[in-house]
Each structure stands twice: as C-alpha cells, then as structure tokens.
Amino acid sequence: MSKFSVPREQHESDVSLAELRGDSARMAPHWVVPAEAAPAPAPVSPSLIHGVVVPPASARLMAAAPEYGA
C-alpha cells in the first residue's frame, strides 16, 4: 500500500479539485459496503440534534466548497 502525503507548507485551501478527486479515487477501494447493508435509520428532526462538534479543518473545507461549484 502506498502512502500519499502533502508537504507541510501546503494547506488544505491550497489543494486543487483535481488533487482532491485523485485522493478520493485512491481511497474509494478502502470503503467497503457490507453485502447486507442495514436498513437506513429513520430521519431525525434537526431540533433533536444537539452537541455536534465540527473540527475547524472540516469547517474550513466546507467553507471553501463554493470555490469548486458545490
């Protein structure tokens, strides 16, 4: 298995869409779906969701998503 790394001086916001897609394509084979997937859980009302913590890096990634047309 190969390991891919990003130079320390390169930050998340410097990653191009092509690099992000390539990283995702390389990771896809590692995400195995079980043969018998459990039934989808019932939807939960947003008013019942409390205490969700989003890491700063994830928040920055989502904030940058409009750059890619998301």
Results as ranks from 00 to 15, higher is better:
P66N: 10
S58G: 09
A59D: 09
A57C: 06
S45M: 03
V54P: 02
L61M: 15
G69W: 11
A63C: 09
V44I: 14
A35V: 13
P46M: 00
S5G: 12
F4R: 05
D23P: 00
P66K: 05
S58E: 10
S2N: 12
A25M: 10
L20V: 02
A18N: 07
P39M: 09
E67W: 04
A25D: 14
Q10T: 14
M62H: 08
V44W: 01
H11E: 12
R26H: 05
P29F: 08
G51F: 01
P56E: 13
E9K: 06
S24C: 13
F4Q: 09
E9Q: 11
A38L: 15
A59L: 14
K3M: 15
V33E: 05
V53P: 00
S45K: 08
E12I: 11
V15E: 01
S5C: 11
V52Y: 01
L17R: 11
D23M: 13
A64K: 06
L61D: 06
A64Q: 12
S24T: 07
P46T: 01
S16A: 09
V6M: 14
F4Y: 13
V53S: 10
E67Y: 03
D23T: 02
A70L: 15
I49E: 09
V33N: 02
A65D: 08
P7F: 03
A70M: 15
V54E: 06
L61C: 14
L61G: 05
W31V: 12
A65S: 14
A18V: 14
P7L: 13
M27P: 00
R26T: 07
E19Q: 12
L17V: 09
V33Q: 02
P66E: 06
P56A: 11
A25V: 07
G22Y: 01
V6I: 15
L48Y: 07
E12R: 04
P66Q: 05
V44A: 06
P29V: 06
P43C: 01
E19F: 01
A38Q: 15
K3T: 14
A63M: 11
D23V: 04
R60E: 07
A42E: 13
L17C: 06
R60G: 03
V53M: 11
M62S: 11
P29Y: 10
L48M: 08
P7W: 08
E12L: 11
R21H: 05
Y68E: 14
S47T: 09
A35T: 13
H11Y: 02
W31C: 06
L17H: 06
V54K: 04
R21W: 03
A63D: 14
A70D: 15
G51Q: 03
G22P: 00
S58Q: 13
L48H: 07
H50W: 07
D23A: 12
P43G: 03
V44M: 04
I49T: 05
Y68R: 15
A28C: 02
S13E: 12
P7K: 14
A38E: 15
V15N: 00
G51I: 02
S45T: 02
K3V: 15
M62T: 03
E9G: 03
A63F: 10
P39E: 13
